[in-house]
Design a protein around this nucleic acid. Structure first.
Lengths: 414, 414
DNA sequence: GACGAATCTGAATCCCGTC
DNA sequence: GGACGGGATTCAGATTCGT
């Protein structure tokens, strides 16, 4: 198989406490280290495993300079079977320590990504997307024998098919100028000052990933305070991005030199901004408003008529927070959603945007506008109350707006 | 497994003659049909196999309209093992009938492409590139639970690691405005008039591929007259593109309705232009000129001195087409390329651009200039001769300039 | 017929909290 | 865990409809 270190079966398997080692880089084989972590303890895994590059010999540019490829021992495997066994082993451990709602990201190239993707499926991970990192500045194909290999592939997968995983949809839509984020991401490769060099000016790691890539991954599929594990930590880009975004991390790395480099790099890296600015989705779920509240608040009156956009359907507002249509035998009563579904003929309906009130000038306004009005009033009252108590060292923040409070220490503003 | 037809073990396995059936659509299971073809008879395979989508239930757009998903029987497999067995079976046959220098293309999505890529590697195909088809107009993600699935993946692989496969580098570079063609291609999905409809106005096939995609694949990895096999022919886009580009094809399709549709579609499709305009690379490899020919042609004389760009190294021209440096014991003899490599210290060297002749005015000219001069003269003579014989039914064209002659029937100008 | 608005559609593994 | 019900969710391009 490979010339990697013997795995840790013989080493003492002292348990590790995830909370204790968060923010650290653990020196060791990732399989051995993961075995010491408890089940279901991390929220996300980001993995940049060896690519199994299989370069035949040294490659030279047309001007005869030599291309510095990946020639490290960690990228050497005897054959596909050896690579598959290795992949299966680390991935099974990663799945064990992943929380049920957690997701995994794995990055690779055509040399290994098909083995990786098949292994994920075989282990019953559930693929959510394959994401293409399109490089703005890839290395050209010097021989002119293939297409410029201008991308790498990331696979994003949930722990299983029924996972209620996190995806910060609105935050990413915002990042993409108001349109859904697509599965193809255009980002530069890691170069310039971001690229770590050793004392001789050579690159410190053969496959350092750009921070921008890690930012986007963490923004998409984790929340502030989440614990992110990177089993192939390298120079620690995952840690730097996690620190900047208020996520906690555990890094595992076999090469002691890289462990030291990553540790000092992260210590020097900027900390996260005010955690309140980092919210999971950036757009927390708004507090729920029952339709009946609009009547209580005087925004609608019992007996008012609601119409759909085309004017083809109408309902009357009842006192109990339901609406009714028709008279006598053909009368139907239900929630705004149920009656909207009935009217539109679909399996479901968002009554808030389906039904409208008619203004005197003939224009229609969705009742969602009334709801937003009411929400704003409620928020003003809540903020006034909160101002009286906002002076502690720790903040209690309802990240998701769902009543779960996350506590974490105050962070300096960077 | 799937509800496909029983495979053809029990059917009579009458051999098929590739030359006879070129241009036809064969009705049947692709594995059974391929078994009837001889070894090493096709130049390229393009395959668009079932993706194994595993759709759970109906999906609706926000406006409550229902998405027409792929619900055909041909995309139903019991599990990954069944899909893998199917993949392995058709792919092994495809490899058998592929010429040693042939390549295969397979397109898929994250549902199946990892199984496909691993199977290719397990069968000892040699992956050359994974190519990303980025869609300009993908279907959005309606529930906001994932990234817009905005691409599909093609894998391009040679029959084995040592294949001398065809890649029309210059033609694709030209297609890409003078820059190397990258591994990410931006193309619209198949819609509008190109999308075939049945009598009711519904799409005739759930997964029709755009012609532009096939054009690029055929342009990249085949030559005029090549025989291209598509084992999942569907509505025959591969055949239409092949006809337009002067490639021959064999299509295999299980569904008799699709066979009929593809056949009539191809019959109505425009034929290729003058084959001389379609050249394999669009830029035929220039005929090879031996260095010694420069002496024969009087462009260099025996004993002339060649120097490198800096003037630090020199060699003398010999009568045998080699060059020599030094005198007596330190004398070295070799080709212009070998002696260039020795002088520059690299593992290889293009002697044509490394070595120069000195003009009387002191300027240096690469000997490649002399070669181009000679080529132009040769081309003038060849064209004059060709005009006298350009009236046969078949043409013999040395596409690659390497002495391999490909014969193909004359095509009318469209 | 021209132009703008409204509608339709595409290889899709497409919800979540509460009781 | 299963059932129930609230309510959140789309982009580009072609085609059809309306004036």
């Amino acid at each position: 198989m490979s010339r990697r270190r013997p795995i840790a079966a013989a080493l003492p398997a002292e348990p590790l406490d995830p909370a204790q080692i968060a923010g650290q880089v653990i020196d060791g084989d990732c399989i051995a280290v993961m075995r010491r972590l408890p089940d279901a303890c991390v929220d996300m895994v980001f993995a940049d495993p060896p690519y199994n590059l299989q370069l035949a010999g040294p490659l030279h540019r047309p001007n005869n300079s030599r291309v510095a490829g990946v020639e490290d021992d960690w990228d050497k495997f005897a054959d596909f079977a050896a690579y598959d066994a290795f992949t299966h082993a680390w991935m099974a451990e990663a799945r064990r320590i992943l929380k049920p709602a957690g997701t995994i990201w794995v990055i690779g190239s055509y040399h290994n990504i098909f083995r990786v993707g098949a292994a994920l499926q075989d282990l019953e991970f559930w693929i959510l997307n394959d994401v293409i990192w399109r490089k703005t500045n890839p290395m050209p194909n010097f021989r002119g024998r293939r297409f410029t290999n201008a991308h790498e592939t990331l696979i994003w997968a949930a722990r299983d098919a029924r996972s209620r995983y996190r995806f910060n949809y609105k935050a990413l839509k915002q990042l993409n100028d108001g349109l859904q984020m697509r599965s193809d991401w255009l980002l530069p490769i890691c170069s310039g000052p971001e690229r770590l060099k050793d004392d001789d000016g050579r690159k410190a790691h053969a496959t350092q990933k750009p921070l921008a890539l890690l930012y986007r991954v963490l923004q998409a599929a984790s929340a502030p305070g989440d614990l992110v594990l990177d089993p192939f930590f390298g120079t620690g880009s995952t840690g730097v991005a996690a620190k900047a975004l208020g996520r906690r991390f555990i890094g595992i790395e076999r090469d002691p030199g890289h462990v030291a480099l990553a540790t000092s790099r992260i210590a020097a890296a900027p900390d996260s901004a005010d955690p309140r600015l980092l919210g999971g989705d950036g757009f927390e779920r708004e507090p729920r408003i029952a339709f009946g509240l609009l009547v209580e608040a005087g925004l609608l009156a019992v007996g008012d008529t609601l119409v759909d956009r085309t004017g083809r359907h109408q309902v009357r507002v009842r006192a109990d927070g339901l609406v009714e249509a028709g008279r006598g035998r053909s009368q139907a009563i239900g929630s705004i959603h149920q009656m909207g579904a009935k009217a539109s003929g679909g399996p479901s309906c968002n009554g808030w945007v389906f039904w409208h009130v008619s203004h005197p000038d003939g224009t229609l306004e969705p009742i969602d506008g009334l709801r937003q009005h009411l929400r704003a009033e409620i928020a003003r009252g809540r903020d006034a109350a909160a101002d009286d108590h906002d002076d502690g060292d720790d903040r209690m923040v309802d990240e998701a707006g769902d009543g779960d409070l996350t506590t974490y220490p105050e962070q300096p503003v960077s």
